[in-house]
Amino acid sequence: MQSHSITVDGIDMRWEETGAGDPLILIHGIPTCPALWREVAPRIEGRRVLAWEMPGYGASIPEGVDRDISIEAQAEYLAAWMRSLGIERAIVAAHDLGGGVAQIVAVRHPEMVAGLLLTNAICYDSWPVPLVDVVAKTGSIAKHAPDGAFHQLLKLMFSKGHETEEAAKAAFDAHGPHYARHGEAEAFVRQAQSLNVEDTKAIAYQLPKLGIPARIVWGEADDFQKIEYGERLASDLGAPLRRIEGGLHFTPEDHPQIIADEINALIRTVETDRAKAIPAESAV
Score class of each variant (00 low, 15 high):
9 D>Q: 13
15 W>K: 13
17 E>M: 11
17 E>N: 12
21 G>E: 02
22 D>H: 11
24 L>R: 10
26 L>F: 10
35 A>C: 00
37 W>V: 09
42 P>T: 07
43 R>K: 15
43 R>N: 15
46 G>C: 11
48 R>V: 05
48 R>M: 09
53 E>W: 10
57 Y>L: 06
59 A>Y: 10
63 E>R: 13
70 S>N: 05
74 Q>E: 06
75 A>K: 02
77 Y>T: 10
81 W>C: 14
83 R>G: 06
84 S>T: 10
94 A>C: 05
94 A>R: 08
99 G>L: 11
99 G>I: 10
103 Q>R: 13
106 A>K: 14
107 V>T: 13
117 L>T: 03
121 A>V: 08
126 S>T: 12
128 P>Q: 08
129 V>L: 09
129 V>G: 00
132 V>T: 07
134 V>I: 11
135 V>I: 15
135 V>G: 09
136 A>Q: 04
136 A>W: 00
145 A>E: 00
149 A>G: 00
154 L>M: 14
158 F>E: 05
159 S>T: 15
159 S>F: 12
161 G>I: 07
162 H>A: 08
162 H>N: 14
166 E>A: 15
179 Y>E: 00
181 R>F: 08
182 H>L: 01
183 G>P: 08
187 A>M: 02
189 V>L: 07
191 Q>F: 05
196 N>K: 13
197 V>F: 04
219 G>Q: 03
220 E>H: 03
224 F>Q: 03
234 A>V: 02
239 A>K: 08
246 G>V: 02
247 G>Y: 01
249 H>S: 08
254 D>I: 08
257 Q>L: 14
257 Q>F: 12
258 I>G: 07
262 E>Y: 02
267 I>P: 04
267 I>T: 11
267 I>Q: 03
270 V>G: 09
278 I>P: 02
279 P>L: 05
281 E>Q: 14
